[in-house]
């Protein structure tokens, strides 16, 4: 019987004076994970961007539940996207997308 994949959905808040493009954001997240955990560690995260709202500065990421501490440690380490300084915070973590949206009231 195939093993059920356990995932975690992470809502992150992006604080920046400038609007950050979707591809720039995900590139910054990958780059932070790579710098901290290397390619082997990054391959275990199963990271995927689910949702991104540049106007609200809100993004939803999905990862493997085992890799959650890695992602939570990598996200605050992002200090710049391009030339602009940014602060990215983990807002909420949930096991399902539905629960995450309910917690965020969106």
């Amino acid at each position: 019987m195939p093993k059920i994949v356990r995932r975690r959905y992470i809502a992150v808040r992006i604080d920046s004076d400038q609007t950050i493009e979707r591809k720039d954001f995900i590139r910054a997240v990958w780059s932070s994970i790579l710098r901290l955990f290397g390619e082997y560690g990054a391959s275990q995260t199963e990271l995927k961007m689910i949702d991104y709202d540049p106007t609200k500065g809100l993004a939803v990421l999905r990862c493997s539940h085992k890799a959650l501490p890695m992602i939570k440690a990598s996200i605050p380490c992002i200090t710049h996207i391009g030339a602009s300084p940014v602060t990215i915070h983990v807002e909420r973590v949930s096991g399902t997308l539905k629960a995450l949206r309910r917690k965020l009231s969106i």
């Binding site: 501490p69 939570k72 440690a73 996200i75 605050p76 380490c77 602060t87 915070h89 983990v90």
Partner: peptide
């Protein structure tokens, strides 16, 4: 500056 929870994650 980061949130306290972010520092805890670090």
């Amino acid at each position: 500056l980061r949130k306290p929870e972010d520092y805890a994650s670090l």
